[in-house]
Amino acid sequence: MIRTVLMAAALLVAGPAFAEGPPAGARVEVNGMQVYYEVSGSGDPLVVLHGAYMNIPSMGAIIPKLAETRKVYALEFQGHGRTTDIDRPITYPALADDVAAFMDAVGLKKADVFGYSMGAAAGLQLAIRHPDRVNKLVAASVAYDVEGWQPAFREFIPQMTVEMFVDMPVFAEAYRKLAANPDGFPELVRKLIALEKEPMAWGADVKALKTPVLIITGDADVATLEHSVALFRLLGGGGMGDMGQPLPASRLAVLPATSHTAVIGQTDLLVAVIEPFLKGETPKGMFE
């Protein structure tokens, strides 16, 4: 159980990984918030969405790596990092709507999206609620139904308390370093615990998606492997190739020996599966 509590702590202490210093950031008004974001690189646009309790620096090396071939727009969600909080629950549909409004504010009509954990679920809702805004979606460590979480995590959710997180210095100290309101951490924790308890059953919506999705999961992730495969099948995957039919647009990648918090640190493996997906490249079989 304590390992699950430390899930976000491991991400928060991860330092930034910019070789020449971080790109200059900016703020834009989105749904009553001042949303902080950074733009780096050049090329086709890619919106990057972080996980719960995280921020842009704690995403580590993946953002600068993706910026080598893409124009990356990395934003910080409601109450996270340098983005202000508002009097509103944090829900996946609300986060998705925030991303769509952010894209309006910075002049992005459509973009590829890469989300991790909470950001992946927000990205999935973005594709469901605003399909015209998403070209391709990369969803790392995601579930579409509460039944897909590992049993140990589902059992732990009712035991989560605000005090549990506030009493861990690594959480509060990392929050204060960037937060617009240094005293706002307990309220953020309350909202994120409530998010864990929100109903989540998006199977029908996922099955109706036309957006290509790359599902990335660790083989010891917070979602079960069976759930990731079920998600892939809802998106049209899981059939046999080499039978004369084109492969589905969506894809599934399982990272070996990788827990939930380790997924975002597997930079080389992530890029190795993300880049071909975004470019539409597929390995050729012997019958092609």
Rank of each mutant, 00 (worst) to 15 (best):
A174S: 11
Y175K: 04
Y175E: 02
R176F: 00
R176A: 03
R176M: 02
L178C: 01
L178G: 01
L178R: 04
A179K: 02
N181I: 14
N181Q: 12
P182D: 03
P182S: 09
D183I: 09
D183R: 06
E187Q: 12
V189C: 09
R190E: 08
R190W: 02
R190V: 01
K191H: 07
K191I: 03
K191Y: 05
K191R: 10
K191W: 09
L192I: 12
I193C: 03
I193S: 03
L195Y: 03
E196T: 14
E198A: 13
M200T: 02
M200C: 13
M200V: 08
A201S: 13
G203N: 07
K207V: 06
L209K: 01
K210H: 04
K210W: 01
T211Q: 07
T211S: 11
P212F: 14
P212C: 14
V213W: 02
V213F: 03
L214P: 00
L214Y: 05
L214M: 09
I215V: 04
T217R: 02
G218K: 09
D219C: 05
A220V: 01
A220M: 10
A223D: 12
A223C: 15
L225V: 06
E226Y: 05
E226L: 06
V229F: 04
V229E: 09
V229P: 00
L231P: 00
L231M: 15
L231E: 10
F232V: 08
F232T: 11
R233T: 04
L234W: 04
G237Y: 03
G239D: 15
M240R: 12
G244L: 09
P248S: 13
A249G: 08
A249T: 04
S250V: 01
A253L: 03
A253S: 08
V254C: 10
V254G: 06
V254W: 07
L255N: 08
P256W: 09
A257R: 13
A257Q: 12
T258K: 04
T258M: 07
S259Q: 10
S259H: 11
S259L: 13
S259Y: 10
H260Y: 08
A262G: 05
V263M: 10
I264P: 13
Q266M: 10
T267W: 06
D268I: 14
D268S: 15
L269Q: 15
V273E: 04
V273M: 07
I274W: 03
E275S: 14
P276F: 07
P276D: 05
P276L: 12
K279R: 13
K279V: 01
G280C: 13
E281I: 14
G285M: 12
M286T: 12
M286F: 11
